[in-house]
Computed example of a mutant assay.
Amino acid sequence: MNEKFYELPPEKQQRIINAGLEVFGAHDYPQASTDDITAKAEISKGLLFYYFKNKKEFYLFLFDYCCEFFRSQVVTEDFIKITDFFDLMEYAARIKYSVILQYPYMMNFVMKAYYSRREEVSEAMKTRIASPLGEIYTVYFKNIDFSRFKPNVDPQQLLQMLTWMAEGYIQDKLRQSETLNIDELMQDFHSWQEMFRKIAYKEEDDENDDEG
């Protein structure tokens, strides 16, 4: 990527990023037109390829940008203080979906990128999503009290299950062209977590929760 992109005024950077998210989020990679992107960004096609070598490089930049943006929004002082696995999952989900409401094109883009198949960008995307769950588990869950789990429960597998459920829920809503409702989504997410909490935690934890 041409470093001169970061020399642009922030407003212009954001306009180019938003245009890319909107067009790539609305179309599969082959059908997404750089002409549409540059028109929405109010720049020339030559200028886009001055900042980014080609369409693929711009696409992968956008995906990396989204990942870093989500990370910066989620990891806060409040996040670090949380020691309960399920409280942390719910906190992160609420922040994540609040971002989705502010930047709807971002979620559409990320979901299309995540499930990219047999496209020019698909192999590069495989590399990017091959190990993020393990990294998330190591970095973001380091302050969690895992002693609350039953011996036969693997918290990392539980994280994977909850991630699949949330992604499947969102994908289904987007496939039906429904607007994501943050309150409805979080209510469902909370119900899933309470169910898994009863299954995964030792009985004395349930008793302590009742006493509290």
Rank of each mutant, 00 (worst) to 15 (best):
M165D: 08
A92T: 11
D206S: 14
D28W: 12
L47S: 13
I182Q: 15
E11H: 11
Q156A: 05
K81V: 02
L101D: 09
V23W: 00
L159E: 07
Q156I: 14
F146R: 09
D84L: 07
N54Q: 02
N54S: 00
F86N: 07
Y169D: 10
D64Y: 01
H190V: 06
Q160V: 04
R175S: 12
G168F: 03
D87I: 01
W164G: 07
L88R: 08
F70L: 15
D210M: 13
R128D: 00
F196P: 01
I17D: 00
S98D: 13
L60I: 12
K4P: 05
T179N: 04
E203I: 05
D28Q: 11
L48Y: 01
D36Q: 14
F52M: 06
M1P: 07
P10H: 10
Q156N: 09
A41M: 06
F86P: 02
F5H: 06
L133A: 03
K198T: 05
F70M: 09
S147T: 15
Q102R: 12
I82S: 03
H190Q: 10
M1W: 07
A26Q: 13
D145Q: 07
T34D: 08
S98L: 07
F196M: 14
R15Q: 15
D87F: 06
T38H: 03
Q31V: 02
P155D: 04
S98Y: 04
F49L: 02
D78P: 03
I17V: 10
F189R: 05
D205E: 14
I37G: 06
D36T: 12
E123D: 13
K55Q: 02
D78A: 12
V121H: 04
R71F: 06
A200M: 08
N18K: 15
S33E: 13
E90Y: 14
F49D: 02
G134N: 15
Y59N: 03
L21D: 02
G46Y: 08
L47H: 05
A26C: 07
I129A: 05
Y137E: 09
I182E: 12
I170W: 01
N108S: 03
Q171V: 09
F5E: 05
K53Q: 11
L21E: 08
D210E: 13
I144Q: 02
A41R: 06
E22F: 13
N18A: 13
F5P: 01
I136S: 04
S191D: 06
D172I: 12
E178M: 05
Y201M: 10
F61E: 01
L88I: 01
Y51K: 03
Y115M: 05
F86I: 03
E184I: 07
Q73H: 12
K40H: 07
E7M: 15
W192D: 11
A200T: 05
L101Y: 00
Y65T: 02
A200G: 09
D209N: 11
Y105D: 14
K112G: 08
L185W: 06
A19T: 03
Y6H: 14
D210G: 00
I43C: 02
Y137T: 06
P30A: 09
A93K: 09
S44Q: 11
K173H: 12
I182L: 14
D206Y: 12
